[in-house]
């Protein structure tokens, strides 16, 4: 199968996935509460609530509401936010750069820490450094993300007064959220890279490379690391979804104005159009990430073909 045929097939799958996700989210939001109850003051009467539900279209059967939503969505209109009275997709897109900025910074932190740690641990297996890196990685995996964020705020911002504890602006605002979210992924990559590299370093072709007299640096970085990174990249692709979940928590703890913060408020308020727009954007990010990973395989391992 050519790469184009493969891409078309994946795009068809993506449409089905997005449709399925939107339907599930719509039903779940419908089942967990009527937005009118949350929007009207608690002294509203039953008649006032009913009038409001009719005006907003909440009184119609769920399948009608969903089909109306879908009809608009295919024309690019995801509806108005029930709370903000602005186009739901615009609200999400406005915050998209902030979340991407945070995610990229977190990736940099995660890879910046985990790749050297993983390589050195694998090469110096059984050393004090390896033990230390193993313990740090285990602690990192075990620490809940919200706890780490709060501890960083208390220590770095409150006790030491070094960095701001909230908001978005310069690099200094980004440091603590990026470390928090980066620590969410970094330890796992360290562990995975270490074990993968240890396996690869036992392979015959590495022994051959060494016996040819190649420098150890060349053996590791040129020959071993490329193959050892395959499982890491697979997991990184899968972790994009988990990272979006992590960004919701990180953005909430640090009051970082990204998509996650918007989403959590929208879920609490049953702001269905905003939740749908957020889920759509996240689904597209995850699908794109997974597709990118699949395409990267063929670069890293030419034996892999599209089928």
């Amino acid at each position: 199968m050519s790469v184009y045929a493969y891409l078309i097939q994946r795009l068809q799958h993506a449409v089905l996935v997005v449709l399925g996700v939107s339907l599930i989210v719509f039903i779940l939001m419908y089942l967990t509460g009527d937005p009118a109850t949350l929007m009207l003051p608690t002294d509203a009467t039953a008649e006032q609530i009913e009038t409001f539900r009719r005006a907003m279209g909440f009184d119609r059967p769920i399948h009608e509401q969903y089909l109306t939503y879908l009809g608009r969505a295919v024309r690019g209109d995801l509806g108005l936010s029930l709370r903000h009275r602005q186009p739901a997709m615009s609200l999400v897109i406005e915050r998209f750069p902030a979340t991407i900025e945070l995610s990229v910074a977190a990736f940099v932190v995660a890879l910046g820490i985990s790749v050297p740690l993983g390589i050195i641990s694998a090469v110096k297996r059984g050393s004090l450094f390896d033990s230390l890196a193993t313990v740090v990685a285990m602690v990192g995996i075990s620490v809940p993300i919200f706890w780490l964020g709060i501890v960083l705020i208390l220590v770095v911002s409150v006790n030491w007064g070094l960095l701001p504890a909230s908001g978005r602006g310069g690099i200094d605002n980004l440091v603590l959220p990026a470390i928090t979210l980066g620590m969410f992924m970094g330890p796992m990559i360290t562990r995975l890279l270490r074990s993968s590299l240890i396996d690869v370093l036992k392979q015959d072709y590495i022994r051959t490379a060494r016996s040819k007299g190649l420098a150890e640096r060349v053996v590791i970085y040129k020959h071993a690391l490329k193959n050892a990174s395959l499982p890491v990249i697979t997991v990184l692709g899968l972790q994009i979804g988990a990272m979006m979940g992590g960004s919701i928590i990180t953005e909430t703890v640090f009051a970082y104005p990204g998509m996650g913060l918007l989403a959590i408020q929208a879920i609490r308020n049953r702001d269905v159009p905003v939740v749908q727009a957020f889920v759509l954007v996240v689904a597209l990010i995850i699908l794109t990430a997974n597709l990118t990973v699949d395409l990267l395989y063929t670069y890293l391992d030419p034996r892999i073909t599209y089928s």
Binding site: I150, V158, A165, S166, A255, Q265
Partner: peptide, 16 residues
Amino acid sequence: PIPEYSTRLALLRTGE
């Protein structure tokens, strides 16, 4: 808007 309570307390303490 600072959604997390612990963060609000911390920001009051730092004077932010």
